[in-house]
Design a protein around this nucleic acid. Sequence first.
DNA 1: ATGTAC
Length: 500
Amino acid sequence: MDTYDADGITLERVGEYVWEIPQEGEMNAPARVLASEALLDEISDDMTLEQLKNSTHLPGVTKHAICMPDGHQGYGFPVGGVAGIDAENGCISPGAVGFDINCGVRMMTTNLTYADIEGHEEELVESLFANIPSGLGGGGVVESGVDTVEAILERGMDWALEEGYAVEDDIAHCEDEGRRPDADPGVVSQKAKDRGKNQIGSLGSGNHFLEVQRVTDVFREDVADAYGLTEDQIVVLIHCGSRGLGHQVCTEYTREVEQAHPGLLDQLPDKELAAAPAGSQLADDYYGAMCAAINYAWVNRQLIMHRTREVFERVFDRSWEDMEMDLLYDVAHNIAKKEVHEVGVGPEGRPAGDDAAVDGEERELYVHRKGATRAFPAGHPEVPSAYRDVGQPVIIPGSMGAGSYVLRGGEASLETTFGSTAHGAGRTMSRTQAKNEFWGEDVQDELEEQKVYVKAQSGATVAEEAPGVYKDVDEVVRVSDELGIGDTVARTFPVCNIKG
DNA sequence: ATGTAC
C-alpha cells in the first residue's frame, strides 16, 4: 500500500488526493487529509497532522476528522479542519471553531470593468483606506452602545436591513441569510459586548483585508453566468471576522469548558481541544454565544460593504445601484453548526467512525469548520434560489501576488467533507518568520510593478501578508476541484488592497 | 485572529 511517512505519523493513501491516519488506540474515528503530495509536504513537519489525529479523541466524532488541502496547524485543531460531532451524545469544542468566530469572506460584484478603474487606483485605495476603519483596536462604521450590540447579536443581517445598511438581496446572498436563530445575546459577557460596541464595521488586522479585484479567468461559463461574473469585471472581496467580541467569547468559553468538564478534558491528548459534552448547559451556552458572535461578524462585513458602496459612489460619481454593486455571496470560515448528515452508526446505535460503523443514518451533528468553507452542491435547499441549480458560491482568497478564486460547492462535498472545502491558500510560515523574511515597503513596491496598489496601517502587516508566506492557491483549488468538493468557477487578481 | 501576556 502507498504510504506517506510524516514526522511520527504514517498516512495510508486511500485515493489520489486522500490520505488516512488509521483508527487506533483512543481514536474514535480515522482521520483524513485531502491533499496532493506537494501539499502534504508543507504540513509534514509541523503540528498539523498530530492536531488532526488528536481531534479524533473528541467523543462523538463521526466518519473521520478531515484536513482540507490548505490546512495548517492552529490552536488545538488545524486551521482547515472539519469534524462532524454527534450533537446528542458527542461534544462541542471552542478550539475547533477558532478564536475569530465567523471569520469569513464576501464578494461584491459590479458592472465596472478594469478599464473603468485604471488610472483611478490610487484615488480609490486612498479613499477606501480613509473611510473603512482598520487596524487593531477600536473605531467602526457604527459606534454605539451595548443595546445596539445586543440587537446585532440577536438579529444579525436583519438588524442591518432594519437600519438601512442592507437591502433584501444582501440578506438572500449570505450563508444562513446572515442570521443564526440560535443566537443568545444573554450568554455573551458584558466584556465581550463592550469590546464589540466600537468595532461594528471594521476590518481588524492580520490577514484581514478589503480588495478591489478584476476577474482574470472564467473556467465554468454556466456557473459564472449564474453568479454574474465575467472576464475583466471589477469585484470587491472583504475578509474579516467578529473582532474583539468573538475573540472574547472564545477565550471565556474555552476557559469555562476546561474548568467545568475536567473528565472530558482528561480523555483528550491536548488541553486546547477542551470541549463541552452535548446536552450540558455549557454546550448550549457556548453554542448560543458563538451563534451571536456569528451574527455580529455578518453585520461587520455588511457595514464594510455598505461603506465601500459609498466610497465608489464618490469616486465614480454614480449610484451604487447604477454600478450594480450587488453581494454575490458571504461565507463563514470559522463556525460550528447543527446540521443533519448521513453518518455511520455503530452496534450500540450511536454515530461512529467509519471503521466501527455497521449502518448508515441521518444524524444531527455539530459540524465544526475551522478555516473551512461550507460548499453545498446544486439542489441543496440551503443554497439561495438564484444559485440553486449550480451550487453554493465558495470564495477563496489567495494572496496579493497570486489572486483569489470563486468556486461552487461540488457534488461530492456532502459525502466527502460534510459539505465543505478549503478557505484560502494557507500560510506556509509564521508571522514572526514572515517579518524576518520580508520588508513591507519592498513588498508594496514589487506589487505596484504588477499594478497592485496596497495601503496598510503598518508595514509589518504587509510583510506578514507578503505573497511568499502563502502556499500555492492554484494547487489548493486544483485538489478541491479534482476531489469534486468545490469546483473552480473564476479567478481574480488584485487591483487595490487595504488592510490593518 | 486579538486592547499579542497569568
